[in-house]
């Protein structure tokens, strides 16, 4: 059975409307304020210690990237902050995107216009993604600007490229949470339930996953004291399970992009390190190769979650 007309006609209109809603809503203002204040706080605190760390400015080739990754007690690093805050922003953007149309009783009226449901869902997702990208890009520029002001030197090309790759990773990470929040907004008719479900998943991955991983790993692949290969297998299984969490993927991606010295994200055997120039930074393309699976994993999760959401939405009854 073939449908007539483009599935995406009207998507741009939906996107424009949702984008206007997102960018003008009080909810978004509050989140932007939160993320900018915490981001600025983290970076401001960090820059002092980065200067100490690097000794003299100019000795460290990647001093700009240290702004993102260095933690200054008691504050976590800027990257760690983002790891927490991006999911919150994404959830806030997505948790009521579909069910609010039902609760407002606008859904059937909108779907009675000559568009397919695809356009509505796609437009909403894209507007969320664009909003997220705008917020993160603004934050990124803000932090880089702050760095230039406080360090008194511009970032090098390599640093800009790596910083940009990190921005892309952050957007992909946000997209995972956005797709998940939208899925819940379709599955649950009540916005509050969808928000709570999203936050529950966020809590699971942000806090409990790292506690659960060793338990699950030991159950699946207990290490044999006398067999070093089985211990390696345990580590690999553990990492595999940990990587179900988008937080792990984002963490690894940022580590590779922002710490050019990172050579491997898994266990490295002594034999593999033979002849390696320890502590020497990798070229950007090698770092990219290193986290290619992580990036692919995040983007694939977005597609899988969106597809499930899409199927759920297509099958949903329009009547409230």
């Amino acid at each position: 059975m073939r449908r007539e007309g483009s599935a995406l006609s009207g998507a741009a209109t939906v996107m424009a409307k949702e984008l206007a809603d997102n960018l003008t809503s009080t909810r978004m203002r509050l989140l932007e304020l939160l993320i900018f204040v915490t981001g600025a706080g983290a970076v401001y605190a960090t820059i002092g210690s980065v200067k100490d760390l690097a000794g003299l400015v100019g000795e460290d080739q990647f001093i700009f990237l240290r702004i993102f990754t260095t933690a200054k007690e008691p504050l976590p690093s800027f990257v760690a902050f983002l790891g927490f805050l991006i999911p919150i922003v994404s959830i806030a953007l997505g948790f009521d995107s579909v069910n609010s149309e039902f609760n407002n009783r606008t859904m059937s009226r909108i779907l009675a216009q000559p568009i397919y449901r695809d356009a509505l869902l796609f437009g909403k997702f894209m507007s969320g993604l664009v909003t997220l990208a705008v917020v993160l890009a603004a934050l990124w520029i803000f932090v880089v600007g702050l760095g230039i002001l406080m360090l008194g030197l511009p970032p090098g090309t390599n640093e800009v490229v790596r910083g940009f790759a990190f921005l892309i990773a952050a957007i992909a990470y946000g997209a995972v949470w956005l797709a998940m929040a939208m899925l819940f907004s379709i599955v649950f008719r009540s916005s509050a339930t969808a928000a709570l479900a999203s936050l529950a998943v966020w809590l699971l991955f942000a806090f409990f996953w790292q506690m659960l991983v060793p338990l699950i790993t030991l159950a699946i692949a207990p290490p044999d004291m006398f067999d070093p290969m089985s211990q390696l297998a345990t580590i690999n299984v553990g990492m595999g399970i940990a990587r179900f969490s988008p937080n792990t993927l984002f963490g690894e991606a940022t580590q590779a992009f922002l710490n050019p010295e990172t050579r491997s994200l898994g266990p490295v055997l002594a034999s593999q390190m033979q002849g390696a120039d320890r502590g020497a930074p990798l070229p950007f393309d090698q770092s990219l190769m290193l986290v290619w699976p992580q990036m692919t994993g995040m983007i694939a999760s977005v597609i899988v979650l969106f597809t499930i959401a899409y199927i759920a939405f297509q099958r949903q009854e329009v009547r409230a």
Partner: peptide, 8 residues
Amino acid sequence: LRQPLEVK
């Protein structure tokens, strides 16, 4: 069912 846009 098949030509929903024309109908709508």
